[in-house]
Computed example of a mutant assay.
Amino acid sequence: MKLFALAAGLAAGLPIVCLSATAQADENRVVIELFTSQGCSSCPPADELLERLAERDDVLPLALHVDYWDYIGWADSFARPEHTRRQKAYARIAGSRSIYTPQMIIGGVEQIVGTRPMEVADAVMRHVQQGPAIDLDVERDGDTLRIMSDTPATARGPLLVQLVRYMPHQVVEIGRGENAGRTLTYTNIVTEWSILAEWTGAEPLDLSAEVPGPDAVAVIVQKAGNGRILAAADLR
């Protein structure tokens, strides 16, 4: 019943939940990475699904635009080669020799075709039920971000503390390629994904980072080597 309700929510949309100036990961926000492209004709339904997911308060959906479809007539204005490299790293872990769009990675470990809302709902529910492995606190004061956590009970390193910047919403008119003539809406478009620190988990975490500019901010703690995502919090 819970799974059906979640899937219905993905299909119909839910009320937007406002975030305060301080984010905590104790609600276990499940990270969903969508690998997508403006030049991919199969991607708009997945982009729309990500937009609906962004209205939920139990997930952190992020769009990583890849560059390997740029050659077919339209260069994706959000594409970054590092997104392609990240997707390839996930593919190697899964033993796959190829990558594709649209693809969703749930919690760093489950790989799903991005146009299958029931499978996405099922995966999200599994990760929500697991509960967070790390209690992560993130606070922002102007352009300074502070990230804190007590020593986790079970998680041990190497753990990567990652900073993600993203644009919550953009509308793009596609001039050429497979989506020529369409006006498409994109949500939570990743503009930066960087590693702030490597953490063993054997001691409390307390670090700061400068985050100038208007883009939204998220912090993700993930096992090294594109492993499981253990905690996530975001601020807008």
Results as ranks from 00 to 15, higher is better:
1 M>T: 03
2 K>H: 06
2 K>V: 00
9 G>F: 11
12 A>C: 13
12 A>D: 13
12 A>G: 15
14 L>G: 07
16 I>R: 14
17 V>R: 11
18 C>D: 13
24 Q>T: 12
27 E>F: 09
29 R>P: 05
30 V>D: 04
30 V>L: 08
31 V>R: 08
33 E>P: 00
34 L>M: 04
35 F>S: 05
35 F>W: 01
36 T>A: 07
38 Q>A: 01
38 Q>W: 00
38 Q>M: 02
42 S>V: 00
45 P>F: 07
48 E>M: 11
48 E>A: 15
49 L>M: 09
50 L>P: 01
50 L>M: 14
51 E>Y: 10
52 R>E: 00
57 D>Y: 00
58 D>F: 08
59 V>T: 13
64 L>T: 03
64 L>C: 11
66 V>I: 15
66 V>P: 04
66 V>N: 02
67 D>E: 09
68 Y>W: 10
69 W>H: 06
73 G>C: 05
73 G>D: 06
74 W>T: 09
76 D>I: 02
76 D>H: 01
76 D>E: 04
79 A>E: 07
80 R>L: 04
80 R>N: 08
88 K>M: 14
91 A>M: 06
91 A>W: 12
91 A>P: 02
92 R>D: 15
93 I>K: 02
93 I>M: 05
96 S>R: 15
98 S>H: 07
101 T>A: 06
102 P>D: 08
103 Q>A: 12
114 G>Q: 08
116 R>C: 01
120 V>M: 06
121 A>E: 09
123 A>E: 02
125 M>A: 10
126 R>Y: 05
127 H>W: 06
128 V>F: 05
129 Q>Y: 13
130 Q>L: 13
132 P>D: 11
133 A>P: 01
134 I>M: 11
135 D>F: 03
135 D>C: 09
135 D>S: 14
138 V>K: 07
139 E>K: 12
139 E>A: 11
140 R>Q: 15
143 D>K: 13
144 T>D: 13
150 D>T: 14
151 T>R: 12
151 T>N: 01
153 A>Y: 10
154 T>K: 14
158 P>E: 11
161 V>K: 06
161 V>D: 01
162 Q>N: 15
164 V>S: 05
165 R>F: 09
167 M>F: 00
167 M>H: 09
168 P>A: 08
170 Q>A: 15
177 G>I: 05
178 E>N: 12
178 E>H: 11
182 R>D: 03
182 R>E: 07
183 T>W: 03
184 L>K: 00
186 Y>D: 03
187 T>K: 03
188 N>C: 06
188 N>H: 00
188 N>R: 03
189 I>A: 01
193 W>E: 05
194 S>V: 15
194 S>I: 15
194 S>D: 14
197 A>I: 01
198 E>P: 03
200 T>P: 06
201 G>S: 12
204 P>F: 08
205 L>E: 02
205 L>T: 04
206 D>Q: 13
208 S>W: 03
208 S>H: 10
209 A>V: 04
213 G>N: 02
213 G>I: 05
214 P>M: 09
214 P>V: 02
216 A>E: 00
220 I>L: 07
223 K>V: 02
224 A>Y: 03
227 G>A: 11
227 G>T: 09
233 A>C: 09
234 D>Q: 14
